[in-house]
Design a protein around this nucleic acid. Structure first.
Lengths: 349, 349
DNA sequence: CTGAAAGCGCTTACAG
DNA sequence: CTGAAAGCGCTTACAG
């Protein structure tokens, strides 16, 4: 009975440096030095301290530690849950997974940046200050939101993904290159009537659109403006609707590009529901290269963004920036986006 | 020039309670009381303090706060990145999104539990102690790992998802009920030769298998043991391989259940590649109800787990447990899993 | 209504 | 080789 009580108590109350010092009969300074690996402490003493720490199940208290050291070993991740973005989008979820993996290997934890804490409302930047993040990674956010810009312009080390600023390191896929390769390939398959249900306006969307039009221009291909539709990223339903519109045209396209792979599913669905054959009658291409795109039959032709590397680079560059700000340039890193040729684009004779 | 310097400096150095007290000519105690809304401070003083805090852009320091208050407003999330689980699985990613959303609304931040920090290795439990989490949610983890069990058995408030323990609150889908409904439906569509490529062993898998066999037994349906295959959750490739084996049987099944929707894609792919028609020749059903399952044509028949509610309940129950441990029972909450009838199971005459 | 003091758990010059 | 002391930023009995 009394034994239980003690064990519960020991469990509940976390051992402090003070407990160790008491148990060993040395000062807290000495204990601290041993625990931090200072070589100046005598071997005897060191051993005793280590033993006591072990026995007491001592774990340092990060809060006390950080209060002194001004270092939290914690990275704030801005991951807006805008409608269809965020964790529900495999693209971002995979980036986060890689980011976390690499941050952890570098010794940093990850905490989501929020708009409030306890019952008080906070801006993103205030939240970052409150939690004393060592650095910040903006994975997906509305970059027109002033709160987001405040974070970018703050004194925190910042890395952004999919968006570049002068004030921060940014990691991007080569959207232009990826789209160029894709468009080039589609043209090479004999398509001239190519429609594009692109995503909502953003710098990423813009770059893809430009590349798309450039390739067409280079091949003297002119498409009617009603071949261009502004859908919503990731929304299969939205893409499905626009596809019906395209299929109803008298000069219907022979190939439809979707804003991303999720949207491509909507396009394919519409084609089948309209009683047409896919890809025999209408070809389709996606973007992102999410896992299911390759599990489909026929496989989807798409552009694979290297989420693994995007997350990895974000973490690594951020750690560099946090640990040696003076020797880390605020560069824009562009990662190759790879064309994946599936069977969803038919060769026209 | 000097102006810039000052502004940079002001930005960099975060204002403390002390700065406010200096600016107002009152004590730090008084400032603290005003900031914390104690009603005892004079109106004049209060106003002055609030104004100064505003002007200095004061944000409290969570580390100092927690050191005193023993409350971190931070929830640790155990989210193992086992091979194909974790963030790469839409099921878990959606649960995490809902969990985060609800935790945030309740005033709590979310930090991933890791195995190390800085350059020192830590167990999961040590990490939790280090970060002083107020509570812990185990979303996906290997429950045979002793480190995980240590967390469950610790004094931290714990909520687990998809796995029950006596020592913690658990939130689960009604896997039995969902599978019963699915199996019942398939049988009602006239299928008797039903194969099941189930996932690797776990309590969840077990419950689904039991329900599956019960329904068959109730209908006096006997299936050969080679209709049962142990695949890997989420791995389309694995399911695809097993499907070829099933299709090569002389008494091939008329319907194949997959461990989950991702795996179902592999099954469908194999059927098509084998030159058979889907769903005319072979029917397919999945599990989980991830978003793409409904974007496919034909739509997949599956069982939708309510990830929204799983995450929500996990957050809400954990907050209850943290804030009023004495009045919060350690219950096991089972959430309805809904049969979604698509067009992937054909009616046999 | 206000403030001095103690203390949360830790680290690190500094002195010996 | 070891320890006393100061301090990180905050809160809260306690005294006035």
């Amino acid at each position: 009975m009394s034994k239980e009580k003690i064990s519960v108590q020991e469990n509940k109350k976390m051992a402090t440096i003070r407990d160790i010092s008491l148990k060993c009969g040395v000062s807290v300074s000495t204990v601290s030095k041993v625990l931090n690996g200072y070589r100046e402490i005598g071997e005897e003493t060191s051993k005793a301290v280590m033993k006591a720490a072990e026995e007491l199940g001592y774990v340092p208290n990060s809060y006390a530690r950080q209060l002194k050291l001004k270092k939290s070993y914690n990275i704030g991740v801005l991951f807006d849950t805008l409608s269809v973005y965020g964790l529900k989008n495999e693209y971002f979820a995979h980036i986060l997974a890689a980011l976390r993996e690499n941050a952890s290997q570098g010794g940093y934890d990850i905490t989501f940046i929020e708009n409030n804490i306890g019952n008080r409302r906070m801006t993103y930047l205030e939240h970052c200050k409150y939690r004393n993040f060592d650095g910040i990674c903006i994975v997906c956010a509305d970059f027109t939101n002033p709160e987001v810009l405040d974070v970018v312009n703050s004194d925190f080390p910042v890395v952004t993904i999919d968006h570049s600023f002068n004030e921060a390191i940014s990691i991007l896929s080569d959207n232009s290159g990826g789209m160029r390769d894709l468009a080039q390939y589609i043209v090479s398959m004999g398509h001239k009537k190519i429609a594009y249900i692109h995503g909502n306006k953003s710098s990423v969307t813009h770059n893809r659109l430009v590349a798309f039009h450039q390739v067409l221009a280079e091949h003297d291909i002119v498409i009617p403006e009603y071949y261009m539709k502004e859908g919503e990223y990731r929304l299969a339903e939205s893409a499905e609707e626009f596809t019906y519109e395209l299929l109803n045209l008298s000069d219907r396209p022979t190939c439809i590009l979707a804003s991303d792979d999720y949207a491509a599913l909507g396009v394919i669905k519409a084609i089948k529901r309209a009683g047409l054959r896919f890809p025999e009658d209408i070809s389709v291409a996606g973007f992102d290269g999410i896992s299911i795109s390759q599990a489909l039959e026929p496989k989807l032709t798409t552009v694979k963004q290297d989420t693994e590397k995007l997350g990895e680079q974000a973490a690594k560059k951020l750690i560099c920036l946090m640990e040696s700000p003076m020797t880390t340039p605020l560069e824009h890193i562009v990662l190759k986006a790879e064309l994946i040729i599936g069977d969803s684009v038919k060769k026209l004779r």
